[in-house]
Design a protein around this nucleic acid. Structure first.
Lengths: 396, 396
DNA sequence: CTGAAAGCGCTAACAA
DNA sequence: TTGTTAGCGCTTTCAG
């Protein structure tokens, strides 16, 4: 106290009790007389006492801090995810500690392993899987701390996991395009994966592709390399939009269409976007009338890129995304998308992690009987819900 | 070691030195023989040793953690700000701890004061001012810890501050509209503030308004209550867009009707948009041809709202924002804006905070002579640069 | 229901 | 250049 902040000793002294009793009173532990507790609380208030968390953590090994690991802050998807997780964490009386990996797998691995905080400072971790290599021994990497994986997409989960409705959502999105009359549908995302290979995939893009291709094939539409365009973020998306637009214009020219209102630079602009043609060497001259983007972020770019080619959304081409980022409601046109419930996701993730933390604490308390009696610690899996948001970008 | 993690003792023992020497070696302190250091490092590596930060912090009182406080994660502005600050913090070997207040002033105050972490766990704090009450005794609130205020806008700063170019940026934005031919310019932001009152303002919106109104008045254009519309985020922005659109349509109708029936005193204004008329009781039927939005987030909504009324941007109305959020480059139309350099901001903020931290540490080391000799600890202020990004939303 | 003793793992200060 | 001593502020343990 002499030099600065009051300590627990000071509070105890002021209340006329021992430090231990003061500690128990402040933590609301049972077995402290009400009058004693009141005295302690009053003393703490009077002295403006704040617990020293470093000391508390050092001794107890618990921090109430949850480590949240994502790729970045500044994207429509991650900013929403982080907000949902951080808010849910706070609501449970825990403290969220958010770390960004900037899409570096080594940074992600370091966050889980070498980060000196991890071992002592975090009670548990929630990590968004994309960016991690697959088939990592995650549970071992973080030395057995409570861990929840978001969108891990493992067929047999090795740790507690909350998955997005990747396959179902993508299927619903493509079906929506088909119902809106689209018959030539492009997919913007990663590489083409043959249908057979999609039988066993363990990452979100593969699952989305499985859902999307399934919907196409079910309706007798094409699913092959000629409909694939690269694009994960808005920059890529613009290029994809250009490439798709070029294909459409080329098809129109080939058909000898003579729309008066057609943009002049249109005819057979054989992939004037160099980068696009590098990414995808061969694209049929297809009059695409619909685009499914594997995420919203890319979708915004695609719409932009189509516009650059004089093509209107939804009049010429309909576009749908998946994720339900906040911005889709304000963009022009508003973006049709698969809205996933990130608040539900956050609740699931926190249910899982708090359950794991409690169980671990209980085990530490020597209630081994209880633990062995309980179900073995199998990894749990949940998949969150989704809603199709039909907005302007797919309007009739 | 017995039960779990290796401790510094274990490393020291394995290397055949004392714990203190091991500590010094691991921290790269001078005065350790190279061969000794190598032995220690090898032992640490072999044992997979990780420092226990809680113990380190408890003893040393230092953490290398910087507390970053913002209103939220999921907005285009804050996601970009947080990313810039977090990245810059990491680049300097410090650890960013980001906290959101959800626009609650009490949460902000708590983050600075009662948060038990604050006192012991953070070496310094960077806080985005908006959401704080003005004229708070900030320096005292965080008990003298190193503190940097972002966009504090105090006329006489009480703590180190990095400001946005609010006034200059807003002025440039409005001048740009004028140069593009706009003569009836609406402002979307907060309340109307009379020009005289703007002489002394201490928050970013007031400064933006000062810059915008200055540009209007310099060109002989109107600055009064009739051009103000409420809107800080995209939802508000949509409403503002509706109201502005209604005013334009009403003006067009009035002009059409003017010659026929109603010679002199025009019809009382009919505001068909209920919400708009609630927010702003009186809006002249003005054929607005330009809109300055006090931030980008609102601008996206305004464009959306104008579109809802059948008005095209930039053909019918030109729109400009301020902030330079990432999304403006991908939206349709792309958004003209004042791009502020958030990376520069982050560098400034970290320069200031590390300087303060170092100075404090030096003082602790008893180098009081140095400190008293140095300049007194006056708060520093910096203002970051900006660039006018003329994009589609203000195209000729 | 309350208190006394001990020590978490590290590092500042000083001694050798 | 290295080692020894002491203790940061709290909480676990166990005795009263």
């Amino acid at each position: 106290m002499a030099n600065g902040k009051p300590t627990l000793r000071d509070v105890a002294a002021a209340a006329g009790v021992s430090p231990m009793t003061a500690s128990n009173a402040l933590h609301g532990k049972a077995g402290v007389k009400e009058s004693t507790r009141a005295k302690v609380l009053a003393a703490a208030e009077r002295l403006d006492y704040r617990i020293n968390l470093t000391a508390s953590m050092l001794k107890s090994g618990r921090s109430n801090i949850i480590h949240i690991i994502v790729n970045e802050f500044d994207s429509p998807f991650y900013s929403k995810l982080v907000q949902a997780l951080a808010t849910a964490t706070t609501e449970r009386g825990l403290t969220p500690f958010v770390e960004q990996t900037r899409y570096s797998p080594t940074a992600a691995e370091r966050a889980l392993t070498s980060n000196p905080f991890s071992d002592q400072l975090f009670d548990g971790e929630i990590i968004h899987a994309s960016g991690l290599g697959t088939n990592l021994p995650l549970a071992r990497m973080n030395s057995g701390r409570p861990l929840v994986l978001i969108d891990g997409c493992e067929e047999t989960p090795s740790v507690d996991t909350v998955n997005f409705p990747n396959e179902e959502g993508a299927r619903a999105a493509v079906q929506h395009l088909i119902e809106r009359g689209c018959r030539h549908i492009a997919i913007v995302g990663g590489e083409f994966v043959p249908r057979a290979t999609l039988a066993h995939v363990e990452h979100s893009y593969g699952l989305r592709l499985r859902g999307a291709s399934g919907a196409l094939l079910d309706s007798g539409l094409a699913y092959d390399e000629s409909i694939m365009f690269y694009g994960y973020n808005s920059d890529d998306g613009i290029k994809a939009g250009h490439a798709i637009g070029d294909a459409i214009l080329a098809a129109r020219a080939a058909n000898g269409v003579d729309h008066a209102d057609e943009p002049v630079d249109g005819p057979a602009s054989h992939h004037d976007s160099a980068s696009a043609s590098e990414e995808f060497p061969v694209h049929a001259e297809t009059a695409f009338d619909g685009v499914f983007c594997a995420n919203d972020y890319a979708a915004f770019g695609v719409i932009r890129g189509l516009k650059d080619r004089g093509l209107r959304v939804p009049d010429d081409v309909k576009v749908i995304g998946i994720d339900g980022t906040s911005f889709g409601a304000y963009s022009t046109p508003t973006l049709s998308t698969i809205q996933v419930d990130l608040d539900q996701l956050a609740q699931f993730a926190l249910d899982m992690i708090t359950r794991r933390i409690e169980r671990r604490n209980a085990a530490g308390t020597g209630e081994s009987a209880d633990v062995s009696a309980a179900a073995p610690d199998q990894p749990v899996r949940a998949t969150i819900g989704y809603r199709l948001m039909a907005r302007e970008s797919t309007a009739a």
